Structure formats: C-alpha cells, structure tokens
Amino acid sequence: MSRNVTVLDYGSGNIRSAVRALEHVGANVTLSSKSADVLNADGLLVPGVGAFAAVMQGLKEVDALRLIGRRIAGGRPVMGICVGLQVLFDEGVEHGVRTPGMGEWPGVVERLDAEVVPHMGWNTVEPPAGSELFAGIEDERFYFVHSYGVQKWDFDVTQPAMRAPQVTWSEHGSRFIAAVENGPLTATQFHPEKSGDAGAALLENWLKTLG
C-alpha cells in the first residue's frame, strides 16, 4: 500500500531531491505547506539546508512550527533531514548567535569539533540495536554535508512507561548525533536522498512505519 507523504515547502534548497527520492521508493508525494496537506498526510518530511536561524525563520513564515507540533502531539509521523533534524533540538549556535529551536529534544547544535569543516562526504553510522530506520542497512555509509551538529545527548526518561529515544551516532573529529528515532518523530543529520541505495532503503524503512 502506497503512503501519502507531504514534503514541507518552505524554501529549503534540497526539496526537489527529497521529492524524487520518496517517489523512487513508492510514496505518493505532495510538495506543500498548506495546513490540510501537512496535517492529513501519512508522513511529513521536513528537509533543511543552510543556517539554523534561516530554517527556523522559514518554518515560522509558513506556520510550520504549529503544524509540526500538532502532528507530533497526535502521534503522526514526522521526519527531519539535516537542518530539519537540528531545529528539533533546544537551540542552535552559529557565529556566536543563539537561536531557539523547537525543543523536542534536549541539546545544542554547535560547530563540529573537527580539523576539517564542513563534514562533507560518506561516513558510517552507529545505530542502536533494534533500530527500525536502519534495519538491514546498519553497516552502510551515508552522505553528510554539515558544519554543525549535536555532540551531547542528555535525555532523562522521567516516566517508567516512557521509551527512551533511539540515537544513532557518527564521528567527524568528535562524535555527533546522526539520527534520532523517537516514536512518531524521526530525523537524520545526513541526506538519505543523496545516499544512493542505502538512503533509499532507509526511506523505505521509514515508509513502513507510517502505519
């Protein structure tokens, strides 16, 4: 059964490649920022390239923060890519300027502690046992293009019934978060739409979780 996915259209630069990648793995894709399209899709994909502050501003201009929040509150799947992952954390720090993020996860997006930045190219990842997103592709390489990332994870599970998010790590100079799986909310720092067969398999895995 084909899934209906809306790719959020708010001016991000990698939108068309994300649309093509999803269509390639069998999704029915709508490129839109309209409320009905965002809220009613089986899955919402939030791409993101460029500066943290610019992405947050673009999301605000199409009322996406409210719409994404409604989907998450209702248990409706959302996936972020690259800066689409970063804005889900508490804040981003670029050139000394702090910009509040969506605060879905604790953490600060900071410049990578590496001799060579940006981190550009193929890299391995370290997914946790039982990951649905990386099922069958645990040892594959994925394509990264970024200078900033979340290098610390401090998530306290306060309720015994809560399941802690599954965090996938990678390394460039220092360890950083490469992906998070947290119930309906999923995100990757790398670009699955630029990651060849491995990226396609990951998107297929995500589509399988849409119910």
Results as ranks from 00 to 15, higher is better:
2 S>C: 08
8 L>M: 01
13 G>T: 00
13 G>W: 03
14 N>K: 00
16 R>Q: 14
21 A>E: 01
22 L>A: 08
28 N>L: 14
31 L>R: 05
32 S>D: 00
33 S>V: 06
35 S>V: 12
36 A>P: 05
37 D>V: 03
38 V>D: 03
42 D>Q: 03
43 G>L: 07
43 G>R: 08
44 L>Q: 09
45 L>Q: 01
46 V>P: 03
50 G>T: 02
50 G>K: 12
51 A>Q: 08
52 F>G: 10
55 V>W: 14
59 L>K: 07
61 E>S: 15
61 E>F: 04
62 V>N: 05
64 A>W: 10
68 I>D: 04
70 R>F: 04
70 R>N: 13
71 R>F: 06
72 I>P: 02
73 A>N: 07
74 G>R: 09
75 G>A: 12
77 P>R: 00
77 P>E: 02
78 V>Q: 01
78 V>W: 00
81 I>G: 00
84 G>Y: 08
84 G>H: 05
89 F>M: 05
90 D>I: 08
92 G>K: 11
94 E>D: 09
94 E>P: 12
95 H>S: 13
96 G>M: 06
96 G>C: 05
97 V>A: 13
99 T>W: 08
100 P>R: 13
101 G>Q: 04
102 M>N: 06
104 E>F: 13
104 E>Q: 11
106 P>E: 14
106 P>F: 13
106 P>Y: 13
107 G>W: 14
111 R>I: 14
114 A>C: 08
116 V>M: 09
118 P>N: 09
120 M>C: 07
121 G>N: 10
123 N>K: 06
127 P>V: 04
134 F>Y: 14
138 E>Q: 13
140 E>W: 05
141 R>I: 14
142 F>M: 15
145 V>H: 04
145 V>M: 10
148 Y>W: 13
156 D>Q: 12
156 D>E: 14
161 A>H: 15
163 R>W: 04
166 Q>S: 12
168 T>L: 02
169 W>S: 02
170 S>P: 04
172 H>D: 08
174 S>E: 15
176 F>Y: 15
176 F>M: 10
190 F>Y: 11
190 F>E: 07
192 P>I: 03
195 S>I: 06
199 G>C: 04
204 E>P: 00
205 N>H: 05
206 W>A: 06
208 K>T: 15
